[in-house]
Simulated assay, not measured.
Amino acid sequence: MTTRTTFAEPEDFTRSEGLRALLNRLYEGGPGAWQHDPVAADLMVYAAEKYGALARKHGLDPWEAASAAFDVMRTKAARTAGDPWGVVTHAVRITCIAEERGQGLLCSTHQARRPHISAFHDAERLSDRENPLTDYHAAFHVTDPDPGESDSTNTHEPAGATVCCSADSAVEDAIALFTLLGWPAHVARAGVEHVCQALAGAGSRQSAYEALRRDKHARALLDVNSTAWTALLKALLGHPSPAYAATAAGRGILLRLLIGESLRALLRDDDLVLLISLAAPKHRGRS
């Protein structure tokens, strides 16, 4: 009697049907099947090559993607799926994204999978920012008067440096500041009053700044160049960028005077003094 031995053809795991057959066989093999099966080793090498580009896209090693594929292949979902490779690919992609987010957020991959955690931006050092933290972080946005300019410290200051409490006094102090820093008195008064009128009509500093920036007629009446006109607007209304909205540079002279800063405090602002004095127009006419 002749006994015939039939050898099963090796599974073509590159196709979904072959992968399903291999996964079922390894599952039925029990513990240790993945460790000792030579086809399983070839499958992992193939997975590392297959998902290598995806892993590198997310800053990972190809074998990290292969490890994620290994975890999925041992599940029932992969064995019973209509397209096992589709299930594995989808799971590996999600794992790679979570790994990348976890590294950026300095947390575990499990936590990075949660939407309320992954919604945050990557962790970064304060020194990585080009602008100081106080220029843009909401925690530092305050509108209180300068602590150094309290009532107790201003008791003996001259009348010209007292804290302003009305719009009229703020306008007069603004004119005085420009005059002290080299601007002709008639130009300073006409410029400040024109900006205040535009501000009252516009309703906000940002919209007033944009309208005045394009007001060539006013610039011609004042007989000042573009540098002096831009410096006048920035000094009075503040820097137009939202990033500077809560800083001294973003508030502008008028607002700083209205919220309690004195003329003497403004004169101690080196950046402001430099901005105004360097842009002062040179007029030979009336002073």
Rank of each mutant, 00 (worst) to 15 (best):
A81T: 06
N131E: 14
T80R: 13
D146I: 04
T143E: 14
Y244Q: 15
K76P: 02
A279M: 09
I276G: 00
R256P: 01
A246R: 08
L23T: 06
L221E: 11
A21D: 12
G201Q: 14
A98Y: 03
D173H: 00
L254W: 12
T153G: 03
R125V: 05
R264P: 00
G203I: 14
S127M: 04
T3I: 13
A243V: 15
A47T: 06
E124K: 10
L257P: 00
N154D: 15
S152D: 15
R284L: 11
P242N: 08
R4C: 04
P281G: 02
R74D: 10
R113G: 05
L254S: 04
V142T: 14
R205N: 07
A55N: 06
N24L: 12
M73F: 13
R20K: 13
A211I: 13
L233I: 06
E124G: 05
F178V: 00
G29Y: 07
S108D: 10
G148W: 09
V142L: 13
R125M: 08
L258V: 04
H110A: 12
N131T: 09
G160Q: 04
V187F: 01
S277K: 01
F178T: 02
R284P: 00
H283R: 15
T6E: 12
W183D: 00
T247D: 06
T134I: 13
